[in-house]
Amino acid sequence: MPDSKMPFILIITILLILSACERNTTAEPESGSWAAALKNGSGQLTAFYVPAGGFAWHDGERLTGVTVDILRKFAGWAEDHYGVAVDLDFRAEDDFRTFMQTVVDAGEGVIGFANVTITEERKEIMQFSPPYMHNIAVLISHDSRPALERLEDFGVVFSGLTALAFEGTLHETRLRKLAGDWYPGMPVEYAHSNAEIIEKTASGDTYVAYVDVYNYWRAIEAGAPLKRHTIGDEAAEQFGYILPHGSDWGPVLHEFFAHDGGFLNSETYRSIMEEHLGPGLAELLIP
């Protein structure tokens, strides 16, 4: 006589398997992810940054600047467009290399900004937002130094000087390349901020350095005795926010930059640039 319990046991087994499959397909999104924020209606985005005048600096108690305000506009757009309240947790990191590694090694819910140049090499270890600004890297010295007319004269014009670099940046790479090509054995000294580079280079005929054009522009406006050697300009640069590889905040950040004909084409973007950098410099750097 057949066992009457067998069909019942079989049905229970099938139901348990189906239930397990359902739970597997509706797994909770990773904590800190955009998917989790979208599901919950809110989320936190931890924003690491390297302090820089005009871009990320404190006006009294309030953190402000170009890159800070753009990120706040993103948070506002996310709430308006998706109904997601994004809490921005800003965290300063003065060391550029530590900043970069912190973001690269992070999990979901982390973004970084420090006017990081977008390069193919860096794309191998991190994710970039669309560019938020163009840049020109400029070669500078004290104003008393003769102008460099040809790159091959680098070792002659800057004989006796020390290359001053912000360690771990493309500016260091550029300086080392010039020195390697035209001034082998040129001493290299490290600075800990762009402000330090400007201050030391302007203090006397001792250093040659690369800085971003906005640092040079502001220093000249403040009366610093600096000379720009235009033969050394590197103009094909773009800055972007950085995220860990695989972060699902990347696509929604791309969506923000593309909305309504492109954020960089908006009056809001121009207003942010002009407020923090001034109309002249903003015009130079707006794509």
Rank of each mutant, 00 (worst) to 15 (best):
H192T: 07
E22Q: 10
M273Q: 05
H259T: 14
I242R: 06
A36H: 03
R97F: 08
T13L: 15
E167C: 04
A195N: 13
L226Y: 06
E124G: 03
I118F: 04
Y82D: 11
A222C: 08
G246V: 05
P244H: 01
D260G: 02
I118N: 09
P279I: 08
F74D: 10
P244K: 02
W77C: 12
A282W: 00
I286Y: 00
Y214H: 15
N194V: 07
P146Y: 10
F239D: 13
T230D: 15
V157W: 03
D3R: 13
L18C: 15
A236K: 15
V208T: 04
R91V: 07
L284D: 02
R150T: 13
P131V: 11
W34N: 09
D59R: 12
S129N: 11
L277T: 12
T26Y: 09
G204S: 13
A209G: 03
E30H: 06
W77N: 01
G250H: 06
P7C: 07
T169G: 09
R122H: 08
P251D: 01
I14C: 14
G41M: 10
P131A: 15
Y190M: 12
D143M: 04
A282S: 05
E275F: 12
C21K: 03
M186L: 09
M186K: 07
R62G: 00
Y214Q: 14
G53V: 10
L226I: 11
F263L: 12
V156K: 14
Q127H: 03
V211Y: 01
E267C: 01
S159V: 02
I140L: 08
L38T: 10
Q238P: 06
P187L: 01
K5I: 09
E152L: 04
P146H: 02
L18Q: 08
A37H: 04
L18N: 14
K177A: 14
A219M: 05
T26R: 13
T102R: 12
I17R: 01
A37K: 01
R174N: 11
I9R: 14
I242V: 15
K73F: 04
F96S: 02
V252K: 05
L38N: 12
H276I: 01
G53H: 08
A85W: 07
F166K: 02
G262N: 08
I125P: 03
F158K: 01
I198Q: 03
Q101M: 08
P287Y: 04
Y241F: 15
S159R: 14
I12W: 06
V68T: 11
S19P: 02
H192A: 05
F8I: 15
K200T: 03
T46A: 06
L161Q: 14
A52E: 14
G112N: 09
C21Y: 13
A85Y: 01
A92V: 05
E30S: 14
I111D: 00
A191T: 00
S33Q: 00
V50M: 08
